[in-house]
Amino acid sequence: MPNSHSQSDKRVVYQEFGNDNAAAFERPTPDLPPQQQNVRVQATRAGRKGKTVTVITGFQTKPETLTALVKQLKTQCGTGGTVKDNEIEIQGDHKQKILEILLKLGYKAKISGG
């Protein structure tokens, strides 16, 4: 087959800056102070084999900030938890306790769902 190009055959006609411009296409993560973040706290069982977890959503901050926050929440609730897709999951139903902690830290937190 004449003129067939493989996927690895990337011919650049014109390139002004460097070789890797992946950083230019990354979506920036806004790092807002807690007072400007509207976070939602809700307990859910969906897709977790009947186990209740408290999910905190709506964060607009860096992953490092979420990691530090999840560590603090896990310690104060005495349970496990994780960060998934910019959301915090804490094992068990700790809506009220987490809401109080987030409010003390300055977040505009609300309980959502029933």
Results as ranks from 00 to 15, higher is better:
residue 4 S to D: 13
residue 5 H to W: 11
residue 5 H to F: 08
residue 5 H to C: 00
residue 6 S to A: 08
residue 6 S to D: 14
residue 7 Q to E: 15
residue 7 Q to H: 15
residue 7 Q to P: 03
residue 7 Q to V: 02
residue 8 S to I: 02
residue 9 D to P: 03
residue 10 K to M: 03
residue 11 R to M: 03
residue 11 R to Y: 14
residue 12 V to C: 01
residue 12 V to K: 10
residue 13 V to K: 14
residue 13 V to S: 09
residue 14 Y to Q: 06
residue 15 Q to E: 11
residue 16 E to V: 01
residue 16 E to N: 08
residue 17 F to L: 02
residue 17 F to W: 13
residue 18 G to I: 02
residue 19 N to R: 11
residue 20 D to V: 01
residue 20 D to E: 14
residue 20 D to Y: 09
residue 21 N to I: 03
residue 22 A to C: 03
residue 22 A to M: 09
residue 23 A to I: 03
residue 24 A to C: 01
residue 26 E to S: 01
residue 26 E to Q: 09
residue 28 P to F: 11
residue 28 P to N: 12
residue 28 P to V: 03
residue 29 T to L: 12
residue 29 T to G: 03
residue 30 P to D: 13
residue 31 D to P: 02
residue 32 L to H: 07
residue 32 L to A: 02
residue 32 L to K: 10
residue 34 P to H: 12
residue 34 P to S: 05
residue 34 P to I: 04
residue 36 Q to E: 15
residue 37 Q to C: 02
residue 37 Q to E: 10
residue 39 V to R: 11
residue 39 V to H: 10
residue 39 V to M: 11
residue 40 R to C: 04
residue 40 R to W: 13
residue 42 Q to F: 15
residue 43 A to M: 09
residue 43 A to Y: 11
residue 44 T to S: 12
residue 45 R to C: 00
residue 45 R to Y: 15
residue 45 R to T: 12
residue 46 A to P: 06
residue 47 G to K: 10
residue 48 R to A: 03
residue 49 K to C: 05
residue 49 K to T: 05
residue 50 G to P: 10
residue 51 K to G: 01
residue 52 T to A: 06
residue 52 T to F: 09
residue 52 T to W: 14
residue 53 V to S: 07
residue 53 V to R: 09
residue 54 T to G: 02
residue 54 T to S: 04
residue 55 V to N: 11
residue 55 V to L: 07
residue 55 V to A: 07
residue 57 T to N: 05
residue 57 T to G: 04
residue 57 T to E: 12
residue 58 G to H: 08
residue 59 F to A: 00
residue 61 T to G: 05
residue 62 K to E: 13
residue 62 K to Q: 12
residue 62 K to A: 02
residue 64 E to G: 00
residue 64 E to M: 01
residue 65 T to H: 12
residue 65 T to A: 07
residue 65 T to Y: 13
residue 66 L to Y: 10
residue 66 L to I: 01
residue 67 T to L: 09
residue 67 T to G: 11
residue 67 T to V: 01
residue 69 L to H: 08
residue 69 L to A: 03
residue 71 K to Y: 14
residue 71 K to G: 12
residue 73 L to H: 04
residue 74 K to S: 08
residue 74 K to I: 00
residue 75 T to F: 09
residue 77 C to D: 06
residue 79 T to I: 02
residue 79 T to Q: 11
residue 80 G to F: 09
residue 81 G to W: 11
residue 81 G to N: 05
residue 83 V to D: 12
residue 84 K to H: 15
residue 84 K to M: 06
residue 84 K to T: 07
residue 85 D to L: 04
residue 86 N to M: 12
residue 86 N to W: 15
residue 88 I to R: 09
residue 89 E to P: 06
residue 89 E to C: 00
residue 90 I to T: 06
residue 90 I to P: 04
residue 90 I to W: 14
residue 92 G to W: 13
residue 94 H to K: 08
residue 94 H to C: 01
residue 95 K to Y: 06
residue 95 K to T: 08
residue 96 Q to E: 15
residue 96 Q to W: 10
residue 97 K to C: 02
residue 101 I to L: 07
residue 101 I to W: 10
residue 101 I to D: 08
residue 102 L to K: 08
residue 103 L to T: 11
residue 105 L to T: 02
residue 108 K to F: 06
residue 109 A to Q: 08
residue 110 K to T: 13
residue 111 I to T: 06
residue 111 I to L: 07
residue 111 I to K: 08
